[in-house]
């Protein structure tokens, strides 16, 4: 079994993370009041990911855990992305028109659509 040194976080670290999370909350609320078009969601998600990373890394102590546990955390996120990306790919491309065989529109071939 691996050596078990319990890593006890410093109070200062925890409080700093807390302060950062509060600041990021204020920041994301403030940024949302501007109009950046599609970028609003990107910024909001980036901030959310940062906040979540802070919680995972410090509060949940992932900075001290084994590679295996980290691998599991990453796997969960990768699978979430697989689900969202492949599903979204359907919706994104569903209405793409495609060029039918050129002769299909050519009256010379006696075929019409």
């Amino acid at each position: 079994m691996s050596a078990h040194e319990v890593a006890i976080p410093k109070v200062k670290t925890l409080v700093l993370v807390w302060a950062a999370l509060i600041c990021f909350t204020a920041l994301t609320t403030w940024v949302a009041s501007f109009e950046f078009g599609e970028w609003n969601i990107v910024i909001a998600l980036l901030i959310a990911v940062t906040k979540a990373s802070l919680v995972v890394w410090i509060f949940m102590g992932v900075r001290h855990v084994t590679t295996l546990t980290r691998l599991f955390v990453v796997a969960g996120l990768v699978w979430l992305f697989i689900m969202i990306l492949l599903t979204a790919s359907d919706y994104k491309t569903r209405n793409w028109t495609y060029q039918a065989q050129p002769w299909a529109n050519n009256p010379a071939h006696g075929l019409s659509r």
Binding site: S89, D90, K92, T93, R94
Partner: peptide, 9 residues
Amino acid sequence: GESMYTSLA
């Protein structure tokens, strides 16, 4: 009615 391109993949 799934997208043809997604179906290909």
